Amino acid sequence: MRRARRFLLLPALLAAACAFAAPKADEPQRFAIIGHSFIAGGEDKLQEAIAATSDASLSFVVLTGIKAASETCADKLYQRRRDLIDDAKRPMIVAPAGSDWTDCKNSAGRSDAIERLARLRELFFAEPRSMGAKKIPLTRQSASPRFRSYAENAHWEVGKVLYSTVNLPSNNNHYVSAAGRNSEYEDRLVATRFWLNRLLAIAKSDHMDAIVLFSEGDIKPFPEPAGLRALLPRAASGHDGFAEPRKLVLAMARKYGGKVLLVDAAGLPKGAKPAIEWKGNVGHLSVGPGVLEVGVATEGGPTFTIKDAATD
């Protein structure tokens, strides 16, 4: 399986070789996550967040969303954000946020979510590599003919850790309480199930030490959150759009045995700082509206440490 993937990715790997040298399997590594740092400051704040993640020692940067819900969904803004992200010094991987597409409406005031998601896929997820001045190769779910629409889901490896983005937007996973079939949500759920099973197979066959999943939405993997996180409101009564993804992720973790770290852009209680909460082999980290660096040491078993990278 791994040999086949390497053959398919050979051109991208060769193109990236001169621009990026990944840490060896037993070397420490660092990556960064940009939460919704730009919500209160628009494009200027996003530029500051990207500048704060320009350290050459960072293996990559994950950006959870490209715009605030209050900003326009126009192609012009999408293209401007693409250019901004592509100018970043480090490899940039985008995990789409609900504010990027689920809240968009057309001129008649009707939902334009599906069309806007399709446009995002064209602009941000069309290539089998990251954005940014330095590129790293990515394997996108769209490489599978059955799921060729789901290019936003991507995986990559650094050392002995498997990383992946999963499109799980924060507004209840875009579950729409309306009559008839909730087609976008249901179809994406099928794609998510396939994707998580694929990640599990890769992690086991390649003997990876850990899996790290990035999404905008918090699937709330623990029934009773600890510490300050317990102060956050739980899902409202009604259908929980994250119930099935949560079940799938926890089942994957049980079958895998290695560490599974879930990273999302959910908000934090006032005064709280990001922290990883572990239960068994499952870890949960909400970044909030900030920039966070994560160190990864795999010798003797994977260990994750976090550090704020303030942009103000």
Rank of each mutant, 00 (worst) to 15 (best):
F242E: 08
L117D: 02
P225R: 00
K135E: 10
M252F: 10
L117V: 02
T192M: 13
V190W: 12
I276G: 08
G180E: 11
V260D: 01
A253Y: 04
A230I: 07
L13V: 05
F242L: 05
S144M: 11
P225V: 05
S183R: 12
E122M: 04
R82I: 10
I50K: 03
G217E: 09
L285T: 04
L8C: 05
E244T: 08
T305D: 05
A68R: 09
I202Q: 11
N197Q: 14
T192K: 05
R5P: 11
L8N: 07
L262G: 00
I33T: 09
A275T: 12
D103C: 07
F38G: 01
S57W: 09
A309Q: 06
H36A: 13
V166Q: 06
A68W: 13
A297Y: 03
E152Q: 04
L58D: 06
F31Q: 00
A310D: 12
E122D: 09
M252L: 11
T72N: 10
R193A: 12
R90E: 11
K67C: 14
N171S: 10
N167H: 12
A15R: 02
N173K: 01
V282L: 01
S111R: 02
A74H: 15
I85T: 06
T305L: 08
I66F: 07
F125Y: 06
P245E: 08
G271Y: 13
V263Y: 03
A297Q: 08
R198Y: 08
S57T: 10
A16P: 08
S177T: 11
A210K: 01
E27N: 04
V161H: 03
L231W: 11
S37E: 12
K76E: 15
Q47A: 08
G257T: 04
A95V: 14
L46S: 07
G290N: 11
A49H: 05
C104T: 03
F214P: 04
V61T: 12
R254V: 03
T102I: 15
F60S: 04
D206V: 00
L228W: 09
P169S: 01
L200V: 03
D75K: 10
L189P: 12
D44G: 03
G42L: 07
R254M: 09
N182K: 08
N167R: 01
H36P: 14
S237I: 07
A251S: 05
P302N: 00
K279H: 15
K220Y: 09
A275P: 04
S99L: 11
P11G: 03
A12G: 04
S286H: 13
V94K: 07
L232I: 02
A310Q: 14
K67A: 09
A88M: 05
P28E: 06
M1H: 10
E216K: 01
D240Y: 02
V260A: 00
V263I: 15
T303Q: 09
P225D: 01
V212D: 00
N106H: 09
F242H: 02
V158N: 07
N182V: 08
A16E: 04
K307S: 13
R193D: 14
H207G: 03
A251H: 06
G300V: 03
L228C: 14
I50R: 01
A179C: 05
P225S: 00
